[in-house]
Design a protein around this nucleic acid. Structure first.
Lengths: 346, 346
DNA sequence: ATTTCGTGTGGGAACGATGTCACATTCCTT
DNA sequence: AAGGAATGTGACATCGTTCCCACACGAAAT
């Protein structure tokens, strides 16, 4: 392998626009015009330049271009946790849309940590990215990037509604539909597992849950609302506690796929029959939900599309920096599977 | 929101090193030295510079720095399909390691397409990335990047062994162990579902399968080796065909998580009892495998670590460009669960 | 024949950070 | 007090590209 590294091509410096200009017998400016298509270039000259560039294996230096133009063709994408299929799929959607629109994607996994998030944001500023798509953990990122004049689109969660663009799903209606589905089946003691109830996504889903209960004249039992941490282990533990108790709920609505996994595991470990003894419905349809037995009913969101839409919105924002900010709400649909059924008769 | 965009900070240009120099009352060179830590800088001067930089919200322009130094602190990561949990986890590992080592990560999902892969590679050259980690679909990427003097680490699959670094898992031993596990349980008709058998990963896993059979004096039945496309639907269809047939195998070894899903679905649809009527073992332990019933036995690879190791190797290569190339082989282990048992007695 | 225009092309100045080099200052030693 | 060493400073070139302006050339119009 050492041989290649010492080969003529690798050791000699990369060809610059100047080399192309000399090879084609024109000036650097002409090469630039011929290659970018901006400005005049006689057909024969253009042809000559293109051939010279191809022969030399010339690749324009993005750094130099960006330095000159003061804005790059890269977008930053900040997601919370790539190991969660939700974020992975969102990133996949963002990636495809970015590629289609000629952007390079700089991705960082912020590991649910505010510190990593800030660090990543600073790196993106340094890179002079054209814009950023973020699943925010706080309002700090958007504020920071905004103060540097970098367009931001908040996706999934939205902290800076009104001042930045957002792409979210119908959290409230989705949660209401899921809860109402349980109510219609006859459930009255419906537990909610949720990460938090104060901001954006968590708030909306909580409200949806409350609305559905209130519409059915069911009084909310605070003991049935569990604010669990953002991991399977914690959610499982809390679910074990609740479902082992004497007056356990007849149904659980888990507000995201991680919490749903914890609850699902707890149900299995306790040997409870689902949906016979306890029904389960989740927000966010993860792949495993249609594979396990019983299949888990879920509010399905088009996550790939969520990512793609966010990048599309970002591109539009980059084109029109001064337009009013927009929040796009994507639809969700309830996929009723096997884990929801009428409650046991007492 | 329009208000903010027109605010004093966003409309005025970003602060440059010159602004910091003026604010601190020193020269640009001094600011550079104080901030980077390279070269002289008196303690009090350094302090003054740091404060001025912080006050102005100065963020060094990576583009300008890279242009000057001719090498960036970014690494490219090219993965086949972020929607596949395998690649998502690999990317997550790469992301964490990159961050820890002070690299920004430019990620592209190549969607299993050679065209997208080349396109992405060219973009990475243009970005002057310090190196690239890739799960290659062909040898073209590594060759191309190598010809531009960009260090490459091939991960999971390895096409350019010997000329570039690689990080792979013990594919052969893993496949052999999985197959031998079935043999030990008494199976003689063991099917192999695999994407291809000619290159790198597929070749090694195929060889492992053959070795295990040959060690047990079992003749290979070509009808039991299915080279399926890289998607669940195809694998499911092929599995339906095979398992519905008269002399179906008593066990299936699926060489990756996607094929395993197809086979698993087919088993379920045909109403076959697993492991009673057919055993299943997979290479690559996807999350769903420990959730479904019966839980699927699998050869588990530490995918997160695979990504992290690749970036670590890349960093080392960047530091020492002329060292001999290294292929790191990570261990795997068979996790025997419920889907493998002795074959039915005829 | 001179002006006017349009069409291509070339020259040179940015862009922002860094490193080199020559020089200026301070401090220590003799 | 003078010399030299040690430390800090600022001007300038550099990286590869793009953009602006100037200019050349020929044709058409006066």
């Amino acid at each position: 392998m050492t041989i290649e590294r010492r080969g003529p091509l690798s050791r000699s410096r990369r060809p610059t626009i100047k080399d192309v200009a000399e090879a084609a017998g024109v000036s650097r400016s002409t090469v630039s015009r011929a290659l970018t298509g901006r400005g005049y270039a006689a057909p024969d000259v253009r042809e000559r330049v293109l051939r010279a560039a191809a022969e030399l294996g010339y690749v324009p230096d993005v750094m130099a271009r960006t330095l000159k133009q003061q804005v790059s063709r890269s977008v930053g994408v900040l997601v919370s946790d790539l190991r969660n299929p939700f974020y992975a799929e969102l990133a996949a959607g963002a990636s495809r849309e970015a590629r289609e629109r000629g952007y390079t994607m700089v991705l960082a996994d912020t590991s649910l940590s505010a510190e990593a998030e800030s660090e990543a944001a600073e790196a993106l500023v340094a890179l002079r990215v054209a814009g950023v798509v973020v699943t925010p953990n706080s309002s700090a990122v958007s504020t920071y990037l905004g103060s540097h004049g970098i367009p931001v689109v908040e996706v999934d969660r939205q902290f800076a509604a009104g001042s930045t663009d957002g792409v979210v799903v119908g959290n409230r209606v989705g949660a209401r539909t899921a809860t109402a589905h349980l109510v219609e089946l006859g459930h009255r003691r419906i537990a909610l597992f949720i990460d938090e109830t104060d901001w954006t996504t968590g708030y909306e889903r909580y409200q949806g849950y409350l609305e559905a209960l209130s519409a059915a004249d069911i009084k909310v039992d605070p003991d049935l609302v569990v604010s669990s941490g953002w991991d399977v282990a914690d959610s499982r533990r809390r679910a074990l506690d609740m479902l082992a108790g004497p007056d356990r709920p007849t149904a659980v609505f888990a507000a995201n796929n991680v919490l749903a996994e914890g609850v699902w595991r707890a149900i299995g470990e306790l040997g409870l029959r689902a949906p016979g003894e306890v029904s389960l419905v989740a927000f966010d349809d993860a792949p495993w939900m249609s594979m396990v037995s019983p299949q888990v009913s879920a509010v399905s969101q088009d996550t790939f599309n969520l990512g793609a839409t966010a990048v599309r919105r970002l591109d539009e924002r980059i084109e029109m920096p001064d337009a009013d900010s927009v929040t796009t709400v994507l639809g969700v649909r309830l996929v009723a599977r096997e884990s929801t059924a009428p409650p046991p008769v007492l």
